[in-house]
Amino acid sequence: MKHRRKAGSWLATVVLTLYCLIAVILIGNMIISSFKTKQDLLFNTFGLPTEITFSNYDKVIVEDGFFSNFINSILLTASSIVSLIFFSSMVAYGIARYRFRGKAFIEMYFLIGLMFPIQIAILPLFIIMRTLNLTNSFLGMIILYSANMSFSVFIFNQFFKQLPGALHESALIDGAGEFTIFMRIMMPISKPVISTMALISFVQIWNDFYLPLVFLTKKSLHTITLAIYQYLANFLAYWNYVFAAVTLALIPVIVIFFIFSDQIIAGLVAGSIKE
């Protein structure tokens, strides 16, 4: 369908360009400022740096241990994604590909988490985690992110449902066990869904603020998001370093977003349409 561009649409283009400039300016300013000396930041706040310095990065990465926050975030995010996809794809597969009594109920049951965000249950969750000795532990966090599986189960369920039944039957005839069929046949053809889920979970877990705030109180376990929050609390004391820290935290997400934006957006949209 072709639309002729009218005067009104040019006006919209101008307004939206200005609006989008907010993000460009904020991110651009952040990157430029991260290379400025403290002097420069004070007297030449928004201009280009008079001299480029890497001392902020040096201080943040080496002295403040921001590097270990970075590693924490990577470890936690990566292992949570693997674990989440493992558990949720199996659940979805069990629901989508088998006929059994109570199937409709189980399907509904796994959707409850979509309606109620985990914050509402945080208190009993905290007590359970404390009893199991899972607070201040990455294992505990990985389990939590995996348990928060409603969205992922839903997406995998949609995918498995539309696969042809013959796929399974022919493998059964060849004598493959049920789990072998799942791992050897179903997982490889699910690659597009797996990568979509991995991307969406990456954005969500990497950026998550609430669960680490509650469950990772020990400083050595802090993720990047928490580390930045700590910097903010002491903003004035550190403010030339904050830019470097924020740049380091933001770059991976932005790069991944610009490479995979179509897939991320499509995945989020697919999960929101239940009809």
């Binding site: 659940v91 796994f110 409850i112 249950a121 945080i122 009993p124 348990a147 599986m149 409603s150």
Partner: peptide
């Protein structure tokens, strides 16, 4: 999946 989902999502909601 049912186990961890129930223990870490559903039970906390009920409790």
């Amino acid at each position: 999946g049912f186990l961890i989902y129930t223990l870490f999502m559903i039970i906390p909601l009920g409790v």
